[in-house]
C-alpha cells in the first residue's frame, strides 16, 4: 500500500467534486515536474509552478483581487499530492470541512488550489501570486508501511519564493488513526492567529496552543527565545 500510494495518481476530479459540494471554489495547477519519475528525482521541479499555472493564478488574482483589496485572502489552502495521493483523497476534503467550521467568520479563505506533482514549497509561489497573507499546504506525507495515508500541513506566513523550512510550522500525521481532523484544524487556526499577531511563522513561532491563550504570551519572549 505504501509503495502504491507513491505512484498512484491523484483523482483530481473526485476531489474537486467534494470541495465544490462543500461550497468552495477550486483552481488546478501543476508543478514543473511532468511525471512521477522526474518528481522523485528533481525536487526543484516539484517546488515550482509550471507556466500555465503561473498565468492561471496571475489572471485569477488580477480579476478577483486587484480592484478589491478588501477581498484579499487571509488563509490560502493548497492541496498537494506529495508522496501519497491516498492521503490527499482520504483526508484533504474532510480536514478542509473542519477548517471551514472553525475559521473566524471574517477570514477570507479564497479558492482551494489543487496542485499535482507538488512539493511543500510550491505553495509559496501560489501564495505570492494570489497575494495571500498566509498559506497552508496540505500534502500527502511519505507513506509508511502501516500509515500510507497520512496528511501533513505546512503553514507559512507571507510566503514568497525562497522561503525555507525554518519559515514554516508543520502539523503532521493527520489521519483518523493519528491526529484527527478537528484537532488538526484547531491547531492550524491557533498557529494562524499566532502568526498574524507575530507577523511571522516558523521557528520563532512556538506552538503553545494547549497552554492557554496566545494573547497572554508577550511576543518578544518568544522571538528572543
Amino acid at each position: 500500500m505504501a509503495r502504491d500510494a507513491v505512484h498512484l495518481a491523484l483523482d483530481v476530479n473526485s476531489l474537486t467534486d467534494q470541495l465544490h459540494a462543500q461550497g468552495l471554489t477550486t483552481l488546478q495547477v501543476h508543478s514543473r515536474a511532468t511525471d512521477r519519475h522526474s518528481y522523485l528525482l528533481r525536487p526543484d521541479l516539484g517546488r515550482r509552478l509550471d507556466e500555465t499555472s503561473v498565468s492561471l493564478l496571475q489572471q485569477y488574482s488580477q480579476h478577483h483581487y486587484f480592484h478589491h483589496p478588501e477581498k484579499n485572502i487571509d488563509l490560502l489552502l493548497v492541496i498537494g499530492d506529495g508522496l501519497s495521493s491516498t492521503a490527499v483523497s482520504q483526508q484533504a476534503a474532510k480536514l478542509i470541512a473542519e477548517i471551514q467550521l472553525q475559521i473566524p467568520p471574517h477570514w477570507n479563505l479564497g479558492p482551494i488550489v489543487i496542485a499535482q506533482q507538488a512539493r511543500v514549497a510550491l505553495a509559496d509561489e501560489a501564495s505570492e501570486l494570489l497575494n495571500a497573507r498566509m498559506v497552508a499546504m496540505l500534502i500527502g506525507e511519505r507513506p509508511g508501511l502501516s500509515s500510507p495515508d497520512s496528511l501533513g500541513i505546512y503553514l507559512t506566513y507571507n510566503a514568497k519564493l525562497g522561503c525555507t523550512d525554518a519559515d514554516r510550522n508543520c502539523i503532521s500525521n493527520v489521519r483518523p488513526e493519528g491526529l484527527v481532523y478537528a484537532a488538526a484544524a484547531k491547531k492550524l487556526l491557533w498557529l494562524c492567529a499566532a502568526a498574524l499577531r507575530m507577523q511571522c511563522s516558523g521557528i520563532a513561532l512556538k506552538d503553545e496552543s494547549d497552554t492557554g491563550s496566545f494573547i497572554a504570551v508577550a511576543p518578544a519572549s518568544l522571538t528572543e527565545g
Partner: peptide, 8 residues
Amino acid sequence: PATDNLSA
C-alpha cells in the same frame, strides 16, 4: 515528537 507544543 509529532508536536512542537512546549507543554506537550
